[in-house]
Simulated scan of single mutants.
Amino acid sequence: MAATGSSLAGVMTRINGRHAFVYERILLLVVRETELRDSVTFAKQDLAKRMGVCVRSVDRAVTKLRREGLVTTEPVFGPSGVQLGNVYRATPEGIELARTFRRDKPRAKK
């Protein structure tokens, strides 16, 4: 069963000492939900709003992830035939890449 509009809690905003790119954050979300629930369903507009970015940024990120073979997508349609969003699943390559991301260690205060 796919999760709809999964929380971004726990999805890193900083990776390997720098600000995370939108595609990296989306990959982390999809990988987490693939491992927990087999997939995640979201509308790009909703995800963009929750991430604080524009829809075009989410669209570019998803296109990049699909092109690189890191995620797969499948459209979800409502009873009237209108597309409601997509189901996203991480591929084994996407899961492997996400595991290379390291969370920043908190800086010690002086």
Score class of each variant (00 low, 15 high):
residue 21 F to K: 14
residue 15 I to L: 15
residue 59 D to M: 03
residue 82 V to K: 15
residue 7 S to H: 12
residue 65 L to I: 03
residue 67 R to F: 03
residue 107 R to Y: 11
residue 3 A to M: 07
residue 83 Q to V: 14
residue 58 V to H: 03
residue 110 K to H: 09
residue 90 A to H: 04
residue 67 R to G: 01
residue 89 R to S: 10
residue 95 I to S: 12
residue 51 M to S: 10
residue 24 E to T: 05
residue 30 V to R: 01
residue 42 F to C: 13
residue 41 T to Q: 12
residue 86 N to Y: 13
residue 38 D to M: 11
residue 84 L to C: 07
residue 7 S to A: 15
residue 106 P to E: 09
residue 63 T to L: 06
residue 109 K to T: 11
residue 109 K to L: 14
residue 103 R to T: 14
residue 42 F to Q: 03
residue 50 R to L: 13
residue 18 R to L: 03
residue 74 E to D: 08
residue 62 V to I: 11
residue 17 G to S: 12
residue 45 Q to C: 04
residue 97 L to Y: 12
residue 35 E to D: 12
residue 87 V to I: 15
residue 24 E to F: 06
residue 70 L to C: 01
residue 89 R to Y: 06
residue 75 P to K: 03
residue 7 S to W: 12
residue 41 T to R: 10
residue 84 L to M: 09
residue 19 H to V: 15
residue 84 L to G: 04
residue 92 P to D: 09
residue 33 E to T: 01
residue 80 S to Y: 05
residue 62 V to W: 00
residue 102 R to P: 02
residue 14 R to N: 12
residue 65 L to N: 02
residue 31 V to L: 01
residue 26 I to M: 02
residue 61 A to G: 04
residue 35 E to V: 02
residue 62 V to P: 00
residue 97 L to C: 13
residue 11 V to R: 02
residue 16 N to Y: 07
residue 32 R to F: 00
residue 81 G to S: 13
residue 96 E to T: 13
residue 59 D to R: 05
residue 63 T to R: 08
residue 48 A to F: 05
residue 45 Q to P: 00
residue 6 S to A: 15
residue 96 E to V: 09
residue 84 L to S: 08
residue 18 R to Q: 11
residue 109 K to C: 04
residue 82 V to Y: 13
residue 68 E to A: 09
residue 65 L to K: 03
residue 33 E to W: 00
residue 81 G to C: 08
residue 25 R to V: 08
residue 103 R to M: 14
residue 37 R to F: 13
residue 37 R to T: 07
residue 97 L to A: 10
residue 76 V to M: 14
residue 85 G to A: 13
residue 77 F to E: 07
residue 69 G to E: 01
residue 58 V to E: 03
residue 10 G to R: 04
residue 6 S to G: 14
residue 28 L to D: 02
residue 17 G to M: 08
residue 68 E to G: 00
residue 48 A to S: 06
residue 96 E to D: 11
residue 35 E to F: 01
residue 52 G to R: 06
residue 38 D to P: 00
residue 86 N to E: 07
residue 5 G to N: 15
residue 42 F to D: 05
residue 75 P to C: 08
residue 78 G to D: 14
residue 109 K to H: 10
residue 44 K to G: 12
residue 50 R to H: 09
residue 60 R to A: 08
residue 14 R to Y: 12
residue 107 R to V: 15
residue 10 G to E: 04
residue 21 F to P: 00
residue 75 P to M: 04
residue 2 A to Q: 02
residue 3 A to H: 05
residue 95 I to K: 10
residue 22 V to E: 01
residue 68 E to K: 09
residue 108 A to V: 10
residue 69 G to H: 03
residue 56 R to A: 14
residue 76 V to I: 15
residue 91 T to L: 06
residue 20 A to Q: 06
residue 65 L to W: 02
residue 77 F to H: 07
residue 74 E to P: 00
residue 50 R to Q: 10
residue 99 R to I: 03
residue 46 D to S: 11
residue 10 G to N: 09
residue 90 A to S: 09
residue 10 G to A: 07
residue 18 R to T: 13
residue 10 G to W: 06
residue 109 K to A: 12
residue 87 V to Y: 01
residue 104 D to V: 13
residue 73 T to N: 04
residue 96 E to F: 08
residue 21 F to T: 06
residue 50 R to D: 14
residue 108 A to I: 05
residue 87 V to D: 02
residue 102 R to C: 10
residue 7 S to N: 14
residue 8 L to Q: 10
residue 47 L to F: 04
residue 97 L to Q: 12
residue 62 V to Y: 01
residue 32 R to T: 02
residue 43 A to R: 15
residue 108 A to W: 04
residue 46 D to N: 08
